[in-house]
């Protein structure tokens, strides 16, 4: 438990709540990497997200916690789920948010990321939520911005709010994360979801297994503190959580896999493979999923699938992160 316990998290403006107090337990004004979060900060985000979930149940799903705060969603890559989730979270907290979608092609001939960011900065936003295809772009942005920066996915590097919502979902289903066997399966090499989840789950004491074709296991995996295998049955055996990663359909081109058909035969999550896991296993996927490629439809639609919980929790977790970052009076 962090500096706050669940009962003491006040959502400002809520009738009957303890007097509204803008405070934060996050040490940085940015969220760039899960690796920057201490264990107590992760707990604080989870506990705050619990409080945020309650807002969804109300007839009027809106609180004034971020009233008067300007948040720019700067997306250099197409995104439906993440952008929508951030946007809903921002609106529920009464922030003034706007979406800037930069097409990939204009990036090549047009303004640089940093010039775009400086121009946005001139309009004094409080937060910039950045999705970018280049690993590290949010770090570079944070180094020149007064606004707080949230990494909404950078290349193959990290996707911190995805990992936080995954961890929150696991905690909701399992009560705790410490000691669970969690298997992450699929295209590990190109996955920012994998990298952020690895940092989060290890920090919270899970036993992490990773599984994928040898061509898609990152070099140096032995230093990641995981058990790596190319046999899905080994990874699934006795697992509490199986987290499937998306494989892009064009991976045949770099000789990573021969065909999607063969990929499904060897690495696809089928009902038979799920049966090796614990009876109460939960199956996760960050979306968008390829049915019949990394996951059988029977599994995706099965009783152990928590994918829609992940999406629902995404809003609450992003509300928590935005509130804890943008609600920090010391930085404003």
């Amino acid at each position: 438990m962090g500096p706050f316990d669940t009962s003491r998290v006040a959502v400002p403006g809520e009738p009957g709540a303890t007097p509204p107090k803008l405070r934060t337990g996050l040490r940085s004004r940015h969220l760039l990497s899960v690796g920057d979060l201490e264990g107590d900060e992760i707990s604080l985000i989870f506990d705050t997200a619990e409080a945020m979930k309650e807002i969804e149940l109300r007839p009027i799903k809106k609180v004034p916690a971020l009233r008067g705060k300007t948040i720019v969603n700067l997306f250099y890559e197409p995104s439906t789920r993440t952008r929508t989730s951030f946007e809903i979270a921002e609106k529920r907290l009464s922030a003034d948010s706007l979406n800037v979608a930069v097409a990939g092609s204009s990036m090549v001939k047009g303004e640089t990321l940093f010039d775009t960011a400086r121009n946005l900065e001139a309009m004094a936003p409080d937060m910039i939520v950045l999705r970018h295809q280049a690993s590290g772009a949010p770090f570079q942005l944070a180094s020149i911005c007064r606004a707080g920066v949230i990494n909404a996915g950078d290349g193959m590097h990290e996707h911190p709010t995805q990992a936080l919502l995954d961890g929150f979902t696991i905690r909701a289903h399992k009560g705790q994360i410490e000691g669970l066997k969690i298997a992450i399966v699929g295209d590990l090499l190109h996955s920012r979801v994998f990298r952020s989840n690895l940092l989060l789950l290890r920090a919270l004491g899970a036993e992490v297994w990773v599984c994928g074709p040898p061509t898609l296991i990152p070099p140096g995996i032995e230093r990641f503190g995981v058990t790596a295998t190319t046999r899905l049955d080994e990874a699934a055996e006795g697992a509490d959580v199986i987290m499937m990663l998306r494989i892009q359909r064009e991976r045949m081109l770099g000789h990573f896999v021969p065909s999607l058909r063969e990929y499904f035969m060897v690495y696809g999550l089928t009902v038979e493979r799920v049966e090796r896991a614990k009876p109460d296993v939960i199956i996760m996927h960050p979306g968008p999923m390829n049915r019949g490629v990394e996951i059988a439809s029977e599994v995706a639609d099965g009783p152990y699938s928590v994918m829609l919980d992940q999406v629902a929790n995404g809003v609450a977790v992003r509300m928590a992160v935005l509130y804890l970052l943008a609600g920090n009076p010391d930085e404003m």
């Binding site: 590097h157 140096g220 990641f224």
Partner: peptide, 8 residues
């Protein structure tokens, strides 16, 4: 390891 961890 470094490139893998940094997603490069």
């Amino acid at each position: 390891y470094q490139a893998s961890a940094l997603g490069l």
